[in-house]
């Protein structure tokens, strides 16, 4: 199994930490992982993306140009990465701020209104965990306990009291993700 993922959105949305939690979940299950950020002078509000690869085998290039899954959290990222999903692959997006919805007919598309849901949960910082939950509902990559372990490993100990609220957000994401179009 190899899963090649791009997560793309604005800085501050938790794109990089979502990728890190995915990687740590993979490490918990003995997988090979790589996490390659687009780093640069961008700050909050700028674009941010990270390429995550999870595999049972040694990972060759951590930098790739087509993906099994794209998790897209703003319009610029939609324009850039919708064309980069492999045929038959998966696109998950948050509808908030999207003016042009995905149009591809050869990929599986799911929508998750995580920004809206995070506001309802009274903690906008759970946004990325809602998205992660939705994605893991569609692609059952790990046991949930590995994800929680991964979350623990990713968070400094001073934030460990926030794990229950993040776990709740993952479950909420699993409930609210909606299928838009599927090809397989």
């Amino acid at each position: 199994m190899t899963e090649e993922i791009i997560i793309a959105g604005f800085g501050g949305q938790g794109v990089l930490s979502m990728g890190k939690i995915l990687c740590y979940s993979g490490v918990m299950e003995g997988q090979e992982v790589s996490w390659m950020p687009s780093y640069g002078p961008e700050m909050r509000g700028g674009t941010a993306n990270v390429t995550v690869i999870l595999s049972d085998e040694r990972i060759s290039s951590p930098i790739i140009n087509s993906y099994d899954t794209a998790i897209i959290l703003n319009q610029q990222s939609m324009d850039k990465f919708e064309p980069a999903v492999k045929p038959g692959g998966l696109l998950v997006y948050d509808g908030n701020g999207i003016t042009r919805h995905p149009e591809r007919k050869d990929i599986n598309i799911y929508r998750i209104d995580a920004a809206e849901e995070a506001t309802k949960m009274e903690s906008t910082k759970t946004f990325n965990m809602i998205v992660l939950g939705g994605y893991l509902k569609v692609k059952k990559l790990f046991k949930l306990e590995s994800v929680i372990k991964g979350l623990k490993k990713s968070l400094p100990e001073r934030y460990h009291h926030l794990i229950p609220v993040n776990e709740k957000a993952i479950h909420r994401g699993m409930e609210i993700i909606k299928e838009v179009a599927t090809v397989n």
Binding site: V27, E32, V33, S34, W35, M36, P37, Y39, P62
Partner: peptide, 10 residues
């Protein structure tokens, strides 16, 4: 290089 410096692996 900057890529290996910035990327995470186990």
């Amino acid at each position: 290089d900057g890529a290996i410096g910035q990327m995470m692996e186990k």
